[in-house]
Design a protein around this nucleic acid. Structure first.
Lengths: 222, 222
DNA sequence: GTCTATACTCCGATAGAC
DNA sequence: GTCTATCGGAGTATAGAC
């Protein structure tokens, strides 16, 4: 539930540009705080200004509109979330391990950024439509998961049917289900506690039952 | 996406009381329409009055506040949803069939009433806390599912571990995942179409892999 | 980049006449 | 049970002085 803090590097090392970027970062962090406490729809330009210690018109020097703040936060969320998942997958063995590690990292990140996760994955603000640029990281995200499934098939951990859109959608349903129930019912419990989050590994394990590998020549099975 | 229409029977057959109840029903139907088009948070007393053809103060003759409208709609949603699930389960064979039929009926109902479902299961309005009376049907709902799991164990369709809280939570995760992905990504497709809703039976089927029945003396296996 | 001032629209809710 | 009138507040956004 801490705000995304990201030291955005600034192109020219101009002091003014750096100061400006800091203000933008601060606005986005405040916006996330507001959404976490007031709900995603509770974000307002006026409240951002109030907490930043300026008057509402000043915000327009940094963002064109309230929706622009939503969009910038959405884009940043997608990007940081993607990096968290990528790092977790990279630290695990390719295949099922990487898939499980990535999905757990995704859930942990969503639990730490509940409002951002809702904005990204549940679209509770009808008036907000993310720009294509903001959506870009999510395409890469799908690619990561797809590759992990293919690796699992290549390693003999899953049957060939797992290298498919269907398997991808099944995993997204499982993660979405665990996250949805966790965020709605026990948002303040740490990951691994409560009724739902401990069940993620068991759910991912069902992929093995859904796409059983050929029993011959499989690697690393206990 | 049609509004819940419910002919609420009125105690005394007084004409005035009947007319009043009709107005209340109409207000709730309008409220659902507004939430379906403007988002759950987009509900406003003024808009209800506008569509009903009266001035905002008149609404207060029927509901004490905006939150009272949320609560009445929440309570009605829980009740009607429960009845839909109960009917579907009652028409199926006890055990896994009834469980699957109930969960599918639940999903179909949620897809037909997306805003109500979000209000009931995702709580997107932070200022709204349902009253205990409004929550009551959801307890009965859990009982129905729990009984179906127990029946499935008794019938030898699932192993004894399925008569458990864990199995209950797993099914709720599966349903929540399918519904969340469907409502967020393909809310206007009919049930059974698209990427996610066709996968519900497959997910429920994984219960058999998670809680395998004793291979002896099982009934009705293909 | 900050501010004041302003224009505008919307909201929930209440008082009191009819 | 309807209305008018009103209160008090919220919000987004722009114009223009400094």
């Amino acid at each position: 539930m801490t705000a995304i803090d990201e030291m955005t590097p600034v192109a020219g090392s101009d002091r003014r540009a750096r100061r400006r970027q800091e203000t933008i970062d601060e606005i986005l962090a405040i916006a996330e705080d507001i959404m976490n406490t007031e709900g995603v729809n509770g974000l307002s330009l006026s409240e951002v200004a109030r907490r930043l210690g300026v008057k509402p018109p000043s915000i327009y020097k940094y963002f064109d509109s309230l929706m622009a703040i939503y969009d910038a936060h959405f884009e940043r969320g997608q990007r940081v979330h993607l990096e968290a998942v990528r790092a977790a997958m990279g630290a695990a063995a390719p295949g099922l391990d990487a898939l499980g590690a990535g999905l757990e990292a995704s859930c942990r990140w969503c639990l730490a950024h509940p409002a951002t996760a809702q904005l990204m994955f549940w679209r509770p603000v009808p008036a907000f439509e993310p720009t294509p640029e903001a959506m870009a990281p999510s395409i890469e995200m799908v690619g990561l998961e797809r590759r992990a499934l293919a690796d699992a098939v290549a390693a003999g951990q899953l049957g060939p049917g797992a290298d498919s859109d269907e398997a991808l959608w099944l995993t997204s349903i499982m993660v979405s289900g665990v996250m949805g129930q966790t965020l709605a019912n026990e948002p303040s419990l740490p990951w691994g506690a409560g009724r739902f989050s401990p069940l993620l590994p068991k759910l991912i394990g069902t992929l093995t039952a859904l796409y059983p590998p050929k029993p011959s020549r499989r690697r690393s099975v206990g």
